[in-house]
Nucleic acid binder design. Structure first.
Lengths: 359, 359
DNA sequence: TTGTATGCGTTATCAT
DNA sequence: ATGATAACGCATACAA
């Protein structure tokens, strides 16, 4: 910061060029002088000025992460996955989270110009294809998470919501359930729509001849509670309820408890996400696990590839599979999991291949 | 990126200096030409190159966050708090999380040189006073979180673990409990040590004449489970158990359940942190809440102050109070909280003033 | 092998 | 009010 390459050069009695060469290990310097330069640099605690270097190198060794204002496990695990893998590639992470709406996001995107070599964007309402078209320089390597963009300049990586829901419905059907109800997420949410589509498709294929009840929710616990009550109020009670995320499932659970309906005895219940809470409610919630950190890791790998070999995996679409996590709330396998110390030993079913890409 | 200030200048038929002046709104340009320049810039989608600008400005408008590899709510909420407040100050966030040990941290710190105006560091084993002394340029504004550094070049912001545990013990004592046991965290953890100290002090003052049982844990659920069993195996059973964090309390809960000991009927149980899970276990766990996002916000405010007015709050020590959250697991107030739909309505006690500073 | 000189994109200083 | 030009700290093509 305060000590520059010039200081090192003067102290080591060489030119700045030699210092640069020595410290970057590009050769062209006597081992002796290199040694001397390194010593001086260490003594002076010289650290190259990142901005100055990237100005000429055209490389910042930094990637950006742009995501909406969301709390909880998803955010932290995703960042964790990205950061961990970024370090592997020698990259650093500039985070811009907590933005609400397109304006915030656009400002954040602008601020990242010239500070990042690439960017991972978690789609959200307002931050969609049209938004990116106008706010994203096309030369900037980009990985889109959770996007419904078919193809474009950016690589796309999605959770396989469809396959996840499908596989869970299959599990429920295999347990003998036919009247399976579904609690949807918000209509403007990409994951929510895919999950609902997966559910409908699975029911049509696996439990034909029925028309499943579908009630609306918004991913909140409160909406799940309401949905649970609504499902109980009907003429015939569902045999199983599939909530589009875990928080709504927890809401349902509460509604069922209050109504004196036993889970899974009277009604089976499953969710989606496998948030930490899922293991700790009573009974432990069967759900579809999203390996979030792995999602982040894969996104980072994709991005690193895009950076190192421009155009390599651009316009490709990838999918990360989910796991079916069977605990007690859906019955069938229950009792088996009454293990000591809350250890986890659910049956785990890979619903999709690890990372399926298609360009 | 690809379109520079020169392009705008050429297109607008002015010099680069005028473009710079117009876009930065420093005056010295005719409203007419400013208007023209702005239009051209917008049309060309010109965005200033951050690195180039900060090279001469000496300001990156970015702050760094350095933290160990931790998952879960604490990380995400802290980042959230920091990022949200950073935006308020017009600052961006360069995150380097997920580092294990001093070497990783040192590398991350080096990489941040010249890319940040200041830095927030979450202390961890290995990243302590000595570490900072050698790895941190003293000119860089720094806020230390969770540090036992008394005073130095950096501002320090801590959670008031001591007051939090103290207040919770007071609550337990007010419920009539006298044989209160404690499950410690890892010895090398700053929070853990402070919490234990708070517990010991509180017991000495509030429940004199007893020597409380203290068993070791490491903040993990498994260690809590073991501790719970150990506490049950003693000659006399404690009336209450205070786990140094919630995950260990959850482990205790499991151990008690297996042993057929009712909570809070036979034994009271409390934790620390108020992780999301705490509300959802059965019975809901009373705990000490750490307002993590607020911690991040305060850290950011401190740092912004340090950046804008060098030396202003340096070498100051601040403390953020905790809240006592009374749910059902500690008895006494229980029954009152059997409200519908898992809504939260705990009695909330501010254990410390909002932000107590001392320089 | 080493040093000199140029340029990266921007702001700041000095002319005009 | 506007333009030419010198920094900022570094890497690199070229000269020696």
């Amino acid at each position: 910061m305060t000590v520059t390459i010039k200081d090192v050069a003067r102290e080591a009695k060489v030119s700045v060029a030699s210092v640069s060469r020595a410290l970057n290990g590009v050769g062209g310097v006597t081992p002796a002088t290199e040694q001397r330069i390194r010593e001086v640099a260490a003594r002076l605690r010289y650290v190259p000025h990142g901005a100055a270097r990237s100005l000429i190198t055209k490389r910042t060794h930094t990637v950006g992460a742009l995501m909406p204002d969301l709390h909880g496990e998803f955010f932290s695990e995703l960042i964790r996955g990205i950061d961990l893998e970024a370090r592997t590639h020698g990259l650093h992470l500039l985070v811009s989270s907590s933005h609400n709406g397109a304006d915030d996001a656009a400002a954040a995107l602008r601020a990242m110009q010239g500070r990042v070599d690439g960017i991972v964007i978690l789609s959200s309402p307002g931050v969609d294809a049209a938004f990116l078209k106008t706010n994203l320089p096309e030369s900037l390597p980009t990985v889109l998470l959770n996007s419904d963009m078919k193809a474009g300049a950016a690589a796309v990586l999605n959770i396989d919501n469809f396959a996840g829901t499908y596989a869970m419905v299959r599990h429920l059907a295999s347990l003998g359930h036919r009247r399976i109800a579904f609690v949807t997420g918000p209509k403007n949410n990409f994951d929510a729509r895919q999950r609902e589509a997966g559910f409908r498709a699975a029911m049509t294929r696996l439990v034909p001849g029925t028309s499943p009840r579908i009630v609306s929710g918004d991913f909140s616990e409160a909406s799940g509670y309401l949905a649970g009550r609504e499902l109980l109020s009907g003429k015939v009670r569902p045999q199983a309820v599939f909530a589009a995320n875990d928080m709504m499932a927890v809401g349902c659970l509460q509604a069922f408890k209050e109504a004196g309906i036993a889970v899974p005895g009277d009604i089976a219940l499953v969710g989606f996400d496998d948030i930490p809470i899922a293991r700790y409610v009573t009974p432990p919630l069967s759900t579809v696990r999203v390996r979030i950190a792995e999602l982040g890791k894969n996104a980072m790998d994709l991005l690193a590839d895009l950076i190192n070999r421009p155009g390599s995996s651009a316009a490709s679409v990838h999918t990360l599979g989910c796991d079916i996590v069977v605990r007690e709330s859906c019955g069938g396998a229950s009792g088996r999991n009454l293990n000591h110390h809350n250890q986890e030993n659910p049956s785990r079913v890979e619903s999709t291949t690890k990372l399926e890409g298609s360009s």
